[in-house]
Each structure stands twice: as structure tokens, then as C-alpha cells.
Design a protein around this nucleic acid. Structure first.
Length: 284
DNA sequence: GTCCATGTTCTTTA
DNA sequence: CTAAAGAACATGGA
């Protein structure tokens, strides 16, 4: 569910709801969503007040009034929900914060697949933090420099969170389509005008998706339970065999980096001698 | 039963 | 400081 636009919507919907509230109690139902695994969340958080909620890449950071912080990653199916204190507890609820205020409320983490989790950072960022720059802020020159660092297909490079933090499978496909770049193109061989188009396409598609509330394919909802609508505006993702909205050619689906990859074979044309970085596999 | 899924990390391979 | 492909993780829906 969660790429940058979905995470941003969770943050934006949550911020006004938890502002100035105090965490009165914490119930951790499963430790396998906690990092480190033995973190004493109740001890660390009880009595603390939220100072800020913000997004970095696909992470949701919570800054506490004592200078400590932690972040939540939603993984594939994770949800953060703000719910009334007495709301029924749904399946796969792994962590519940009870929040002060009138009426009393809860913040709950629900995640069937448990690819997501809570990561305690304390007062200093984790040393293994190697997230790339924010896609909405990066310059095309910086993006070009980073894309030059790898020979992988550009789609794979865009999914690498150390190269760029926030894109996932949907928006990587959509951005490449808008930029008219085939996902299989060798990252380091993209030309400057192409990278310039790509940087602009990334900004455009992310901003439009944020404004549409994100994409709800299965069960993504923001902190208040609202669904997104950007799935209705996808141009290639999930549209295999359906006509390209620009040229009516059937959208093609391939697998890259183990992920479904969608593109228009005409609009996103293959440049001869640029399909791969391996010159031995060039067509004769 | 099979295949697929908005993500990340570990292991294997060339 | 290889670096890229593949498997694994856990659950549910089509």
C-alpha cells in the first residue's frame, strides 16, 4: 500500500489528530514488528507527548517531547489508524497507543503481512540510515549523477531507496511512462534530457498522487480511514493488455527486479544500442 | 490447489 | 566498499 504519496497522506491526516496528545499506555501484541526486538515501548513512550510527525522516504517519524524519536514503516500492508478508544479491535492489530484527550483515543498499527514495523531510534539517527534524497526535492543534476552510479535497469535503480527515497513499484512505472523512458533502459546510459524529463515526471506524478489521497489498490487508507483515488488515474500500472491512454497500444507487463513492470512499448520506445549495458547481448 | 500483491533484507551467483 | 539477481519473509484475495 504505501509509497511516498500514501505515507504522506497518513502523516498529513494523523498530524492534527495526535498534536499535543500524551501517550497514556502502550500495548505491544507482537514483538516481531519491533526493532530492536526487545525495545520496551511501554517504558519508552508512556507519559510522552508527540512533538512532531513527519515523513522521510517511506518512513513515518514521530518526534517525542523528550528528544527521542522512532519511525514506523508500513511495509506492504501496514496501516496506522486513529480510532476511538472503544473501537472494536480488528485482526492483525499489533500495537495500540492510548492517547489523552477528550474523548480518549487510540493510535493502532494493523499489518496482516507484518512486513512493516516500529523502529526505535532514541536521540540519534540510526547509523545504518542510508536513505537517498527526497524525490520532491532532488535536482535533475543530482538524479543524473546518482543514476550514473549503476548499470541496473533504470526501473530497478528508482526502487533503490539508497538512490532515491520514496518511490515504489507503482510510481516508478508511472514516472517512467510520463517521461517516455523504457524501464529496462540502462540507468547509467540515460541522456541528460531524459533524466531532466524523469525528474519532472517524478515530481508531477507524486504531487498529483498526494493531492488525490494516494492510490488504494486493496486496502490502503489514511489515518482516518479515507481511501485514495489516484488508482483511477494510473496510466500503466495494473493496465496490462489495456490500451495506452496516449497511443492505444496494449500496455506490456514484464518482470524487473522481481517486480511487475508496466510500460507502453511505443510511447516508451527502446533506443537502439541502449537496451542494455552489455554490448554482447546487442541485437545484430 | 495456483499465482499475485503498493517492500525490504538476506543469500546466491557470476 | 563487487554488484546484481533471486529467495525469503507472512497473509490474503482472485
Amino acid at each position: 500500500m504505501p509509497e511516498l504519496p500514501e505515507v504522506q497522506n497518513v502523516v498529513d491526516s494523523l498530524r492534527p489528530l495526535i498534536a499535543r496528545r500524551i501517550i497514556q499506555s502502550v500495548v505491544l501484541r507482537r514483538t516481531d514488528i519491533s526493532s530492536p526486538p526487545d525495545a520496551n515501548w511501554a517504558g519508552l513512550l508512556t507519559g510522552r507527548r508527540f512533538r512532531a510527525v513527519r515523513r522521510r522516504g517511506k518512513r513515518i517519524y514521530f518526534d517525542l517531547d523528550d528528544g527521542n524519536r522512532f519511525f514506523v514503516h508500513l511495509g506492504m500492508t501496514g496501516r496506522l489508524r486513529f480510532l476511538p478508544f472503544d473501537a472494536a479491535e480488528e485482526c492483525h492489530t499489533h500495537l495500540i497507543f492510548t492517547l489523552s484527550g477528550r474523548p480518549k483515543a487510540t493510535l493502532r498499527f494493523i499489518d496482516p503481512r507484518r512486513f512493516g514495523g516500529f523502529f526505535w531510534e532514541g536521540a540519534t539517527p540510526r547509523s545504518d540510515d542510508a536513505l537517498g534524497p527526497e524525490p520532491l526535492e532532488i535536482t535533475w543534476q543530482d538524479l543524473a549523477r546518482r543514476l550514473k552510479s549503476t548499470a541496473r535497469p533504470v526501473k530497478s535503480a528508482l526502487l533503490d531507496q539508497r538512490l532515491l527515497a520514496g518511490l515504489g513499484n507503482i510510481y516508478a512505472d508511472e514516472a517512467l511512462h510520463i517521461a517516455r523512458i523504457r524501464p529496462t533502459r540502462c540507468s547509467k546510459r540515460l541522456q541528460s534530457p531524459e533524466v531532466e524529463r524523469l525528474a519532472q515526471a517524478i515530481r508531477d506524478v507524486l504531487n498529483r498522487a498526494i493531492n488525490a489521497g494516494g492510490s488504494t489498490l486493496r486496502d490502503y487508507v489514511n489515518a482516518t480511514g479515507a481511501e485514495g483515488s489516484f488508482q483511477n488515474l494510473h496510466m500503466v500500472y495494473g493496465r496490462e493488455k489495456m490500451p495506452c491512454l496516449t497511443c492505444a497500444t496494449p500496455i506490456r507487463r514484464i518482470v524487473l527486479a522481481g517486480r511487475s513492470t508496466h510500460f507502453c512499448p511505443v510511447c516508451q520506445s527502446m533506443r537502439r544500442s541502449d537496451s542494455t549495458c552489455n554490448r554482447h547481448s546487442q541485437r545484430h
